[in-house]
């Protein structure tokens, strides 16, 4: 059976674990780099990206996660996870640089401007309840990146091969359709990596 990890340095880890398990897949919390060998795909959860980056640096996760992605193993980032995956951040240095896109942090405003809205997401759903919390958005994407969803003219979900990201938090709802989509990405990658 496939195993999906959730980077468990800080943030909404429990919710992602629950939604992976709801999809019938084994889920583990990743706190040490050695654990990356045990998993077929990883979710970078929502939380505070500055906090996660500091802890990523403290425990050697930066190159380990980049290597994990280079092996062709799927990575899914939500909110702070999306920021970690971008190769360009407005006004700041990039983190993992896995996806060819420029993002802006807290781009919809402070917490009082946080919102939820029904979104259409390509390949996933026509009416996905998307929860945006001090959310980032994607300012522009490279030619290899496909936009999966937009809100108010901003790109809020995207995919580049085995990399997936959303500016919103699917883990805060009971709707597992986007996690199911990621689980399918992990299945396909495992098959192709095995052959």
């Amino acid at each position: 059976m496939n195993t999906i990890g959730v980077l468990a340095l800080q943030g909404a880890v429990r919710e992602h674990i629950r939604s992976i398990q709801d999809c019938g897949v084994y889920a583990i919390e990743i706190k040490h780099v050695e654990q990356l060998e045990e998993i077929d795909g990883i979710i970078l959860p929502g939380g505070e990206s500055t906090t996660m980056r500091r802890l990523i640096d403290s425990y050697g996760f930066l190159t380990a996660l980049q290597e994990f992605g280079k092996q062709g193993k799927p990575v899914f980032g939500t909110c702070a996870g999306l920021i970690l995956m971008a190769n360009e951040i407005d006004g700041e240095n990039a983190h993992l640089g896995l996806m060819d896109m420029k993002v802006a942090r807290n781009a919809f405003g402070r917490q009082v401007a946080s919102f939820e809205v029904d979104l259409e997401i390509n390949y996933v759903a026509e009416d996905f309840n998307a929860v945006f919390i001090r959310a980032p958005y994607i300012v522009e994407v490279g030619t290899d990146v496909e936009e999966l969803a937009t809100y108010d003219g901003r790109i809020v979900a995207a995919q580049q091969g085995h990399y997936l990201c959303t500016a919103f938090h699917p883990e805060l709802t009971d709707d597992n359709r986007i996690i199911e989509y990621f689980v399918e990405m992990v299945n396909k990658s495992k098959q192709s990596l095995a052959s």
């Binding site: 943030g11 909404a12 939380g47 909110c79 919102f115 939820e116």
Partner: peptide, 21 residues
């Protein structure tokens, strides 16, 4: 339509702080 200040958005903000100081 986008809804602000919902219970899910307000509680969700705290969920993102978990495991933190």
């Amino acid at each position: 339509m986008a809804n602000r200040g919902t219970e899910r958005v307000k509680r969700g903000m705290a969920e993102m702080q978990k495991g933190g100081v």
